[in-house]
């Protein structure tokens, strides 16, 4: 088990390296000039050039990347060009709200999606099934910003139940919960569609298998047949899907956090990119990549727990 995990972590290192390099190159290609940002809009061109040389931006990209990696190896992510705080502290402040948002949206949407998908499979062809599938199609096809705006319009403005700006505090406080409600609701909504659809088709497939007939031949009650011998097996592909979807969720978080002015990694990334804050952009890319790799690692571990065939014997 530990060997598997270590193996996965080793495999992740080149992935991380690749992501960082691509991110680095893309930021170079993006419009905006970090030296100009640092110098200020009114500084004369000589000063801008001098600052550019100081920042090492006049050197080839590959050299810059090498220097960046060298600093990274020492745990130094640089300083934000705008706030002049260290990127590490900026990330540290933003990471907790983002994790809270992830947890809050997954906490309700995954169980609900799985339950909806299972019931839809069991009552296949019923009105309930069609209703669930209609909802999930809507969930899949509505863009996240639109869901956010609709939720703000109805639950924030027309019936002012929840605040929709900023973070009220840590998740375990009442204010924190009230503030996270709308962002978590909108992020979760884009999740429910794929999860319930996948669960439905997976459960339908498993219920046709021979071992389910064996379970029935044992005289097990139908509920036990469906939960223990149907859903349990059906969850294997669902877990894979959830792992992949969390990647999209990270992307969705960028939009959601921006719309709700929620102080997480996503909003930090958007702010950094828009203001050509080069070190901070690179820092957020690093944080998101690490997050994605971690989630996939967790999914792999879960996978071996769910499917004994995936374990080495």
């Amino acid at each position: 088990m530990i060997e598997t995990i270590l193996n996965r972590i080793l495999v992740s290192i080149p992935v991380l390296f690749g992501v960082l390099f691509l991110g680095f190159a893309l930021v170079q290609l993006a419009p905006g000039d970090p030296a100009r940002v640092q110098a200020g809009p009114t500084a004369p061109p000589e000063v801008v050039e001098q600052i550019r040389a100081e920042m090492g931006l006049d050197q080839p990209v590959i050299v810059q990347f090498g220097k960046y990696m060298e600093r990274l190896a020492h745990g130094d992510l640089g300083r934000s060009l705008i706030s002049n705080k260290s990127v590490t502290s900026e990330l540290a402040a933003a990471i907790v709200p983002t994790i809270e948002l992830m947890v809050a949206s997954l906490f309700w949407s995954i169980p609900l999606g799985i339950a909806m998908g299972t019931l839809a499979a069991v009552w296949r062809g019923s009105l309930f099934d069609r209703f669930i599938m209609a909802i999930s199609v809507a969930g899949v096809s509505l863009p996240i910003f639109f869901i956010c705006l609709i939720l703000i319009q109805f639950l924030g403005v027309k019936f002012p139940l929840f605040p929709f700006i900023g973070r009220g505090g840590p998740l375990w406080t009442m204010e924190g919960l009230r503030h996270i409600a709308l962002p978590a609701l909108s992020l979760g909504l884009i999740f429910i569609g794929p999860v319930s659809r996948m669960t439905r088709s997976s459960v339908l497939e498993v219920l046709r298998l021979d071992h389910v007939r064996t379970a029935r031949a044992k005289g097990l009650p139908e509920r036990q047949v469906i939960l223990r011998h149907g859903l349990r097996n059906a969850l294997i592909p669902v877990v894979t899907l959830v792992g992949l979807q969390i990647g999209y969720l990270l992307g969705g978080a960028v939009v959601t956090e921006t719309i709700f002015s929620y102080p997480g990694i996503g909003r930090l990334a958007v702010g950094a990119i828009l203001s050509s804050d080069f070190p901070l952009t690179q820092g957020t890319i690093l944080a998101l990549a690490v997050g994605f790799i971690l989630v996939n690692l967790i999914v792999d571990i879960l996978y071996t727990q769910l499917d004994p065939r995936a374990q080495k014997t």
Binding site: T214, A217, K218, I236
Partner: peptide, 20 residues
């Protein structure tokens, strides 16, 4: 009765047991 006083064996041993 099923699995109690009436037992059943199926044709496909490879797929008749739950793999998990």
């Amino acid at each position: 009765l099923r699995g109690g006083r009436m037992g059943m064996i199926f044709q496909e041993p490879m797929t008749s047991l739950n793999p998990v």
